[in-house]
Simulated assay, not measured.
Amino acid sequence: MGFYTRTSLRAGPFRFTMSPSGMGVSVGVPGFRVGTGPRGNYVHMGRGGIYYQSTIGKPAPHSPPRPRPYIPPSSSVVMEDVTGASVQELVAGNRSDLVNQIQVAARRRPLWPFALGALLVLGLILGRWGLLLILVGVPAIVWLAMRDRARRSVVVMYDVNDDMARRFDDLVQAVGALQQVGGFWLITASGAVQTPYQYKVNAGASTLHRRRAAAASMNGPRILVTNVAIPTLTSGERSVHFLPDRVLLREGKHYADIPYQQLELSAEAVRVIEEGALPRDGEIVDRTWQYVNVKGGPDRRFKDNRQLPVMRYGRLTLYNHHGLHMIWDASQFRAVHATARALTNAASAQPPIIPS
Rank of each mutant, 00 (worst) to 15 (best):
M164D: 13
S96V: 09
Q173N: 11
R166L: 14
D97Q: 14
L171D: 00
W112N: 07
R152P: 08
N94D: 14
Y319E: 07
S96E: 03
D159G: 10
D245A: 04
G127R: 07
T344V: 11
Q103N: 07
A342I: 01
T188M: 00
R280M: 10
I354L: 12
H337R: 14
M79W: 06
L278M: 14
V34K: 01
P231Q: 05
P20A: 13
V292N: 06
G46E: 02
S153A: 15
F302K: 05
V272W: 12
Y4H: 12
Y70P: 00
I284S: 03
T288Y: 04
P38N: 12
S54F: 10
M45I: 12
I354N: 09
T195A: 01
I56Y: 04
Y291I: 01
L119Y: 03
Y70L: 10
G12E: 01
T234G: 03
T5S: 09
F114S: 11
T234A: 10
N94G: 06
H254P: 00
E274L: 07
A11G: 06
V77W: 05
W328C: 02
V272F: 10
V104M: 13
F16T: 01
P351F: 03
V121R: 01
G28I: 04
A205Q: 02
I50G: 06
V285I: 13
I56L: 13
F3I: 12
V201L: 05
R33T: 12
V225Y: 02
S86L: 04
G282M: 02
T5V: 11
T344E: 08
A177L: 09
V29N: 04
I102K: 06
R107H: 15
F16V: 14
H337W: 04
Q198C: 01
L133D: 08
R151I: 08
I223D: 03
Y158K: 07
R47G: 02
Y158G: 02
L308C: 02
L178Q: 06
V87S: 05
A214L: 07
R33A: 13
